[in-house]
């Protein structure tokens, strides 16, 4: 018989092992990338155009494309996802139809991203005639992260105690007044956190954008949502496929930049969450 104390100890070490093995793998990956690419990052790498000379090539157009995609995706996905989330939580709460919608939205979150790319190609690029533009890419990514935003919106809204809502209704407020003055302001921090996390996942996506038609070589930054574009993951993918090994160093450097952007976004998400959480206490 193993005593409860020993069991407790075994479990504790198992948990420690799990944590540190995951961290160690991440550290190995980041260390390897930093080792390979850090010395390559300088100002000219950030502002140069793509080139056949690995030492002259830069990621200017890829960064600009990524920033365009980032903002457009956010602008599109935010009202879309939040609106759907509010409907499901506040209006269509108990119907069977809502239950069916809920299952489907949860399933959508698990659909491989390339499927969204194919959908975007057919609907946005061809049917709506947007061609392979920044807008078509952003719409596709917005669609991709929509389920995540809907789910986080609902989770956040659900945390508002029913008693508070009932108090507002008791004062004669309409549903829209409750949503506008109570539900949205108190859950916006959580919603924003969800949106930012979803977007920081989206900026690493390559597959759907390849399908939609992100290009490999674009020597100019997009000036309007209808311009063609490339993004950082495309540039990285392109460089890792080149026969010359020097391009792999460029790829590592671009990965560092991409990681930095992701870390920054996650940082903002945490900051927002802390700021808003302090404001409302039920």
């Amino acid at each position: 018989m193993i005593s409860n104390k020993v069991k407790d100890r075994i479990f504790k070490y198992w948990a420690i092992f799990c944590t540190f093995s995951a961290l160690a793998l991440l550290a190995i990956f980041i260390g390897d990338i930093l080792h390979k690419g850090l010395s390559r990052i300088d100002w000219s790498f950030m502002v140069s155009l793509p080139s056949r000379h690995p030492e002259k090539a830069g990621i200017y157009t890829a960064i600009m494309g990524t920033i365009w995609i980032l903002f457009l995706t956010a602008i599109i996905a935010f009202p879309w996802g939040v609106g759907a989330g509010i409907y499901l939580e506040e209006y269509g709460k108990k119907s069977k139809f809502a239950a069916l919608l809920e299952i489907n939205i949860t399933n959508l979150a698990g659909v491989p991203s390339i499927i969204y790319g194919l959908l975007g190609l057919e609907i946005f690029v061809r049917m709506m005639g947007l061609h392979s533009s920044v807008l078509a890419g952003a719409l596709t990514l917005a669609l991709l992260i929509l389920p995540i935003i809907i789910v986080t919106t609902r989770e956040t809204i659900r945390m508002i105690p029913e008693s508070i809502r009932e108090a507002a209704y008791g004062l004669g407020a309409t549903k829209w007044q409750v949503i506008k003055t109570l539900v949205l302001p108190s859950s916006i921090g959580g919603i924003m956190t969800g949106v930012i996390l979803a977007i920081s996942r989206a900026i690493g996506e390559t597959a759907p954008l390849i399908v939609v038609g992100a290009l490999a070589y674009v020597p100019f930054a997009p000036k309007s949502p209808m311009d063609s574009f490339t993004v950082l993951p495309m540039q990285i993918y392109n460089w890792t496929g080149r026969p010359q090994k020097e391009f792999l160093v460029n790829a590592a450097a671009a990965i560092i930049v991409l990681l930095l952007i992701t870390f920054m976004m996650n940082g903002i998400a945490i900051w927002l969450r802390n700021k808003w959480q302090k404001k409302y206490k039920w």
Partner: peptide
């Protein structure tokens, strides 16, 4: 890509995109 890169010097206002 190499040709487009060199062509930039020749005709900077022509936008060449390559997939």
């Amino acid at each position: 890509e190499a040709v487009a890169e060199e062509f930039r010097a020749e005709a900077p206002d022509v936008k060449v995109t390559i997939g």
